[in-house]
């Protein structure tokens, strides 16, 4: 009987089983970025932050014209004013973040060992507000998107550096985000990867699908379709609805973990936000 258990254990502990059970962000990063670099050899790694504009000459030409007067400029100016404004207690956002909140966006989302949860920059801004006696802002658009636009702009060009510490809860959050990204959902049976990995660079009606690599680097962004600014979580909600899946709450663990995994897959790429998209 002991031999039977041993044989069963050996069968289960195949290299494949071990690989799928133990989260390994470093290996994932290498495979993820390698996949895109091999598939699109003419696109350099850093250029992936341009999203769909690497795949369509006409859209790229339009984008360059649009960027002569960036459509997010008003949001950027408003975000700066909001960021620098004093709270009723005399403090400001700068007091809540290292380096006064300047040039730190490339490190978010980050794992908070105290709560055991992933914290996006938007959630960190809301934490700051609550700590200073203010209410939370909506995480999808409006003043939050403007504040994030300003904070992200101060990180423009800095390389994304989202580290997953060797902490069981951090690794579990990373793995949950990874599973969410690759799981098909909704009545249309699509995963995030269906569009942004397998169909990256292809057309979905009039739109070119941006590759998942570098996709978070331009958020928050001004989308012509929206006519205003939106955060990454707004895009998550939109994608979920498109595949006929009920979206999660903006501050849900599912979206935090998804942002954590997805951003960590763009480690080493430069921040290019706020951005502009069709």
């Amino acid at each position: 009987m002991k031999f039977a258990y041993l044989a069963l254990a050996l069968l289960v502990m195949t290299p494949g089983a071990l690989a799928s059970n133990k989260p390994d962000p470093a290996s994932d990063l290498k495979a993820f970025q390698g996949y895109f670099l091999k598939r699109f050899p003419k696109i350099p790694l850093a250029a992936y932050v341009n999203g769909p504009y690497d795949f369509s000459k006409s859209e790229r030409a339009q984008w360059k014209q649009i960027m002569e007067f960036p459509p997010y400029q008003f949001a950027l100016d408003h975000g700066r004013k909001l960021f620098e404004a004093k709270f009723p207690n005399g403090k400001s956002y700068a007091a809540c973040f290292p380096h006064g909140g300047i040039g730190i966006a490339q490190n978010y989302p980050m794992f908070d060992p105290k709560t055991g949860r992933v914290v996006t920059l938007g959630i960190a801004v809301n934490r700051c507000r609550v700590a200073n006696g203010l209410g939370k802002l909506k995480l999808t658009t409006g003043p939050m998107a403007d504040i994030l636009a300003y904070m992200t702009d101060t990180s423009r060009g800095k390389t994304i550096d989202v580290t997953v510490p060797d902490n069981p809860k951090a690794l579990a959050a990373y793995q949950a985000g990874k599973q969410y990204f690759y799981s098909r959902r909704g009545q249309l049976n699509f995963s995030c990867a269906s569009c942004h990995v397998q169909a990256a660079g292809m057309h979905l009606r009039g739109n070119v699908l941006a590759p998942a690599l570098g996709i978070t680097a331009s958020f928050p962004l001004y989308r012509s379709k929206w006519g205003n600014m939106g955060t990454l979580v707004r895009r998550f909600i939109g994608c979920n609805k498109k595949v006929r899946s009920v979206p999660d709450k903006p501050d849900s663990a599912a979206y935090r973990d998804l942002a954590y995994f997805l951003t960590s897959m763009s480690d080493g790429l430069p921040i290019a936000g706020p951005g502009a998209r069709p």
């Binding site: 390698g34 990874k178 690759y182 799981s183 959902r185 049976n189 995963s191 990995v197 397998q198």
Partner: peptide, 20 residues
């Protein structure tokens, strides 16, 4: 019921979509 079946299947199938 279909969405439950989808969720159950995806618990195993999602790994097939991971680039290697």
């Amino acid at each position: 019921e279909l969405s439950i079946a989808q969720a159950m299947q995806q618990k195993k199938l999602w790994v097939n979509e991971v680039p290697r």
